[in-house]
Amino acid sequence: MAAEKINQAHEHGQSRETVSYLKTSFLKWKPDYDSAAAEYSKAAVAFKNADAHTNNKTALEQAAMMLKEMGRLSDAVCLIEKASLMYVENGTPDTAALALDRAGRLMESQDLAKAVDLYQQAAGVFENEERLRQAVEMLGKASRLLVRQHRFEEAAESIQKEKNMYREIENFPTCFKKTIAQVLVHLHRNDFVAADKSIRQSYSLPGFSGSEDCVCLERLLQAFDQQDEDAVHQVTNSPLFKYMDNDYAKLALSLRVPGATKKKKLPAESSEGGARAGEVEPEEEDDEYAGGLC
């Protein structure tokens, strides 16, 4: 019975009809991806009924690629998720996680929330296999997309997971950078207490206390606490913040302090065309002829 089902599956996946759907001719300019995808889906069902996992995954991925070419990304990703589950069941979790990563990249242009979910799934697969370096890379992608969607509370939790993993693999310098990202997220949530707690927790990391990252963060929190937006702007425009991942660099540049007061700029800081450094602009004199000669 299984052999019969496998033969049926191969007939769907390699039939003349399937091949013809993908060919073009003088009268047929575009491949019929819709029909081809349907045939591959039938093949996947047949392989599943025959319990032929390897062939089933192949058929599902072929159907997914057809759907992708048709612009039906959501349907394609659904099939990739099914294939990834079969990879895990068949003892190839790395392949499953990589498939989910590819699906996440596909969805970034269409559905950021779904892309986050796919990256988190991939991270989970890698973490279960104790491959933390790969898992934390997937989590990093999810965190950045959460920030892009202004889902700051979830982003803060995701970054904390990253920090925990980097700490476990003893990549402390990257922990410092994740602390900066987490502080920015908390400040955008107007949660000064959480931002301060994030820094305090990082004091236990080897090398953090007294580092450039630590000093800049302390200056940032002090300026934020004093509601000095100019000082905040000065810190967030430093190279340490500007050369972060793009989503976090944007967070730094867009940071505003509620109820902040701006200090008056010195002449040297004035806009182009104003007084130069060390010069004082002359006071305007009343024009005694402003009303004419009468």
Rank of each mutant, 00 (worst) to 15 (best):
M1I: 09
A3F: 08
N7F: 04
H10V: 08
P31K: 05
A38D: 10
S41I: 05
A44D: 00
V45D: 15
N49F: 00
A52N: 13
N55Y: 15
A64F: 04
M66C: 11
K68E: 14
E69R: 12
E69G: 06
R72E: 15
R72S: 15
E81R: 07
S84L: 12
M86G: 02
N90P: 03
P93I: 05
D94C: 05
A96K: 02
L98D: 02
L98W: 04
R102K: 12
L106V: 07
E108Q: 13
L112M: 06
L112E: 14
K114M: 11
A115F: 00
V116D: 08
G124E: 09
E127D: 14
E127N: 15
N128H: 11
N128V: 12
N128K: 14
N128M: 08
E137T: 09
G140T: 01
K141E: 13
A142S: 13
S143V: 07
R144V: 06
L145M: 08
R151D: 11
F152I: 00
E157N: 11
I159W: 04
K163G: 00
R167I: 00
E170K: 14
N171V: 10
P173M: 12
P173N: 14
F176Q: 01
T179F: 01
I180F: 01
H186Q: 09
H188W: 02
R189G: 09
D191S: 12
V193T: 13
V193R: 14
A194F: 12
S198E: 01
S198W: 01
R200S: 13
F208E: 09
S209F: 14
A223F: 04
D225A: 07
D228Y: 02
D230F: 09
Q234V: 10
Q234C: 08
T236W: 07
S238C: 09
P239K: 06
L240G: 06
L240R: 12
K242V: 14
N246L: 09
A249R: 12
K250N: 13
L251V: 12
L251A: 04
G259K: 03
L266Q: 14
E269W: 09
S271Y: 10
S271I: 10
G273I: 07
G278S: 07
E283F: 10
E283A: 13
E285R: 10
E285N: 04
E288T: 02
C294E: 15
C294M: 10
C294Q: 10
